[in-house]
Design a protein around this nucleic acid. Sequence first.
DNA 1: CGAACTGTTGAATAAGGTCAAACCAGGTGG
DNA 2: CCACCTGGTTTGACCTTATTCAACAGTTCG
Lengths: 246, 246
Amino acid sequence: MKLVVGNACTRHEMEAVPQDCSQCAVREIAVCTALSRPELERLRGIAVTKIYEPGSTLFAAEEATTMVGAVVQGTIKCFKLLADGRQQVVGFLFPGDFVGSPTQETTHCFAEALTKVELCVFPFPAIQRLIREMPSLERRLLQLANEDLDLAQEWMLLLGRKTAQERLATFLLLLAQKARARGVAEGPIDLPMNRSEIADYLGLTIETVSRQFSKLKASGHIRVAHNNEVTIRNLDGLTEIAEGAA
Amino acid sequence: MKLVVGNACTRHEMEAVPQDCSQCAVREIAVCTALSRPELERLRGIAVTKIYEPGSTLFAAEEATTMVGAVVQGTIKCFKLLADGRQQVVGFLFPGDFVGSPTQETTHCFAEALTKVELCVFPFPAIQRLIREMPSLERRLLQLANEDLDLAQEWMLLLGRKTAQERLATFLLLLAQKARARGVAEGPIDLPMNRSEIADYLGLTIETVSRQFSKLKASGHIRVAHNNEVTIRNLDGLTEIAEGAA
DNA sequence: CGAACTGTTGAATAAGGTCAAACCAGGTGG
DNA sequence: CCACCTGGTTTGACCTTATTCAACAGTTCG
């Protein structure tokens, strides 16, 4: 068991109204995909762009929800804590992903920027009002919530039943797939998180994660550069491992 | 690792249109809570009551979604499988709970009746149409999806970071809390699932689950009757264990 | 260059898994 | 009525995987 990471809740923010959604890097994949031109305008009306520095906290758990948002750039870590500091990462969020629960008055996890993050923020009471008035927005949020739920359950399978090796293989394939989904060119996978954060996502320790990286390198499934760039050299093999081929 | 449980996909069903929603046991807690009288009538228009015998399958994973529904009576187990038969239960559903994903064209887990189940079924194309036409229904589904997501993430914390003892304590408290939420009178908690299913929910083996039951009995936190009736004798103590008090 | 991090590797340990036997309650049938 | 079977559960002994503890290597930064 590990002691608490004592993040001092630093909030470095800057505000600005988004200039033009049609220029937005995530226009085609984020919440706003489903919206018509006039609807998009209304959403833009309540949106604010915020920049978070690496390590800064977007919000903590069990506090009143003040906002939700769409990641435009950077990576966010969402996690839960136990009393003694044990941490479980419940998700890494990339450009296009949605942060926060739009229907719940209080938050249930911590959200922290891993890199410099550009977030399209929708302040809370405003977004709730807008949801009531725009069924297409609500429909999109329902769709996203169902996808998130599905991913969470897939992760329950990983945490409850997969071996360390299978977990890491699954993780790398997930990152590759998410990168593809947001249109990142094929090539090495970027790991914006460190070993400790990977461990907290996979329910392992940093040492075990490191050993599994070494094994996957040794068996020729992956190649690693600078500890944060992974190339998959044997996709089929890695997939077999990830799925626990009998 | 355990071999596949080879459930032979038996489907024992009976159909009937619900007579009168105002008489329904879960009217106040299920999806339909949020609906007005006329809206409720429309939902009833597409609903069908089905009875499932214990052990029968409601649907399998990775097949086309044919229906979603509200549990009226009984308990359902939702689970995922790995290629070699390892199983992870992603949720137990009780009266008032919603089964299935209303926005996804294909299922992602198996659903099986643990007891005799009475289900208020909403056939798939019909419910999708209805959602588009009834924002209040959609809002309620979004709310339920967010709650489910939250529970799933809480379970990720359990599976990734809690000890066997903490897992069982958390599980018992969850059952107690869910029973309370659906208005079951205080008293012993009923366990409609066996040790194997508990193990598959907690990411443990049946032996470990059994040992932890014994420990909680020995320490006076719980009392167990007939293996399926648990009385919590020390709520505060159990809560401390569940939350991993440092 | 040395301090402070982060990551890797090795050796010892522990939590939970595996295997096997005993237990126990609820049915069945003589 | 009671012996017997059967399935689920409990308990014990041993083993494996991942954790813990510790040393070391590679980077970054003052």
